[in-house]
Amino acid sequence: MKSGAAIATILVSPALAGTIFGVGMILGLIPSNLVFVSLQANSGILPIVAGIAASVVGTLVWGIQAHQRRALDGAIAVERRSQLEARRRFVHRLNHELKNPLTAMRAGLANLAAGGLDADGSLGTVGEQVDRLSRLVDDLRKLADLETHGMECEPVDVVGLVREVAEMVRAEPGRSCRSAQLHIQEIPWEPGPVRGDRDLLLLAIYNLLDNALKFSPAESPVEIRVVEDGTWTTVEVADAGTGIAAYDIPHVAEELYRGRGAQAVEGSGLGLALVERVASLHDGSLIVRSRSGKGTVATLRLPLHNS
């Protein structure tokens, strides 16, 4: 129900209006702060009482419903946290179990190469695949490290960091032609520092920009936007790439998750998981919005140093 319709009803019959407000609030359609309108628009004591009574009942029921909704949301959040924990434990065990076989395989490959047993060049291929698995295990360790690593806590100039990351990426082989356009809030002031670990934040911003470049065509631009709203500094990295399918979005920050559109691009499926972990360590957040075929915006929100 729209509030305009509700106010029109009040002018006709305050009692009916009170009842409608009550029912509306029971159904969760009308916020309780509209109750005062019914008090201003009545013309008799009984309709007032009836209206207020219905409103009070409605508010109570609405409150109970809101409580139930919060409880349900809470239960879903707890369940989600527990699923994430179980997933992390599994990834941790998988990582652990892969280490010994990979160590033996790397030494075995070195022995085979030294023995001149690589007649058809297969050792090179196997070696590359073992290296790939080793990198995956290494990336999983990096994620695990974030859980235990002592974090530096100092004021970090995010704008400086974004400029540094843009320069770093430009200096990488094959990326000199890619342009990352910076849009930094300047008026009336530049975004202030955030409190946190400079290196982790650098890594997070690097991963966002790296992803944007990886998942967009070479000729398309990438934008990095930095704004501050007095409480948060927000870094947005936007690309005009392939985008992420709607059903992949809720999972993009899960370890090892590779969306269907990401299969063709080399990567471990850990980049956004790492960014999400860094964001949460800083009491911030990562939000990913995307449209298939249009592009993706990754938003990293970090609390300002003095907020």
Binding site: H149, V165, M168, V169, D199, L202, L203, Y206
Partner: peptide, 15 residues
Amino acid sequence: IWGWDYPAATRAVDV
């Protein structure tokens, strides 16, 4: 020390 070795992150060491 950092626990990662992304090529671009060597700047962190220089800092």
